[in-house]
Design a protein around this nucleic acid. Sequence first.
RNA 1: GGGUUUGUAGCCUAGUCUGGAUAGGGCGUAAGACUCCUAAUCUUAAGGUCGAGGGUUCAAAUCCCUCCAAAUCCGCCA
Length: 572
Amino acid sequence: MYFKVKNEAIAILKNCLDKLGYEIPDEIKLDNPTNPELGDFASTISFELAKVQKRSPMEIASEIMGNIEIKSIFQKIEAKGPYINFFIDYSIFAKELLKTITKDYGQLEKTGKKIILEHTSANPNGPLHIGHIRNAIIGDSLKRLLTIAGNNLDTQYYVNDMGRQIAIIVFGIKDLKLELDPNFSEKIDHQIGNLYFKANQKLNEEPELNTKVGDLIKTYEAGKDSKLNIVFEKAVEDCLTGVKETLHKLNIEHDEFVWEGQFVRNGEVNKIVDDLIATGYTKKGEVLILDLSQDFGIEKELVLRRSDGTSLYSTRDLAYHSFKSKQGDVVLDILGADHKLAIDQVSVALELIGEKAPEVVFYEFINLPEGSMSTRRGVFVSVDDLIVEAITRAEKELKTRRPELTNNELLKIAEEIGIGAIRYYIAKLSPEKHITFKWDEALSFEKGCASIQYAHARACKLLEKSKKANDNLEIAIDNIDDEEWDLNKAETDLIRILAKFPQVISESAKIRRIHLIAQYVQDLSSAFNKFYKSEQVINHEYEYYRLLLVDKTRITIKNALDILGVVAPITM
RNA sequence: GGGUUUGUAGCCUAGUCUGGAUAGGGCGUAAGACUCCUAAUCUUAAGGUCGAGGGUUCAAAUCCCUCCAAAUCCGCCA
């Protein structure tokens, strides 16, 4: 609906320019003025024409105004100085819009594109910490966003079962006889993280033990020692169990878990190395390297094999990316900013052998006030702890607000609010922003996600109450054209924001940024809360229209929260 | 040393790609609003050298140059 009106405005302008005999630019851009008093769309076309024609923009604007034709959906078109402002006629537009908002509002046309989205992919050497969830939350929200934007998504978690990290864990189990408690006295990924920390300490004290780790890597990569394979696989599987549990609590599920080891075993890594040798960009010295400095300006050489013949992460990653490249139209990675150089190398290498380079969404680090996090050093805040704290805080708040709730109800709502707070905290920031983690900022309920969820719950409750007082809501939709509806400011503001939802989705999906959605749903719920506070709905003259407005707002808030992976509670 | 990212009120942040109207939100602060559909709400106010300096332009938070600060990368780690 919004697209349609915007295009209509552009058509009106084009028509007018044509009439005046001016050359029509390829693209006519319309701004959304921040101040509603300046209209719904604004054109700065006068400035551009002024440059070409060497006349004042004001003069051109008034000339345009003298020749412009107003169509019915617009109430008026005004020139404010050099700007040309379009004002929508909301008494018509609002009714049209309400008809277009259905259960799947926001769903864009199918693009037919398959997108392979890899996210999270944390090493299975400990529990997820708050650095990892930025990846997971951005990744999962993008999956939801790109799906509603019409794409076919496949999400993958790349499991690093072959790295040095995992070998260190196996070394801890086999050589240091560190034990995991099979009775799960502590969540298994936390146990593994702890074991990893201890094994690293030992290796720091006695660096000569590193040869044992090297031997483990070599043996596992060869894959012939089936007993050792089982130890590796068990450790990874165990850790992954814990990680999946954490992700599940955050409403995050992956379609596939792809183990990197398979690419060594099935010969893909060797094949990639051979293909790269064939390009002529490799050099063989003590180790095999890929040199991209001459033709691609990448200073750092990429080592493809260790001197002992084993593969490295980046080589296996090349094989994995080649695998993904064959599965979809777009390969999308969510990566920490520390991977920028590495993925540049991988991308160039992939293009050299005729595969698709990934598109990458980078995010900056989350640090603790005391510095960076590290699983190896045992310095981190785990996501599990964060979740417990978030839910505890929500519970406490709920107890004072809704003392009449049963324990089960309370826990359910507290979970929805706590998880929402976490996801929203990450989602609302643009990914290139550096974050210093602070509990109070991460878990704020004021004007954060909770107020959005609250708006949704309010809308639900209102609709429920109206059902008791009224006939069915559908009647209002049928009769929508028969009655006049003179909208006030609160209603107009709400309509205006509701109308923008598909445009926001389209724009966010295009630039692969979820924080626009977070901002949008905040604006929407804020407009709804204002409306709710200032206007009576039940028993009002325009009750049908207002109930419709409430219902459509409810749908839109829910669909927007869905993109962020946040539950829209019916009550709270 | 070189590359990349960030710097917007006491605090957090949008806007930077694609220059355009009075720089948009939120927290906190101050004052106010529940005999009325849920006050996790709403209303009002104060609070800004858009890191600093220079340049381009009719117009710069936005583009260009120099500098400052923070983070990060420059591993036979992942």
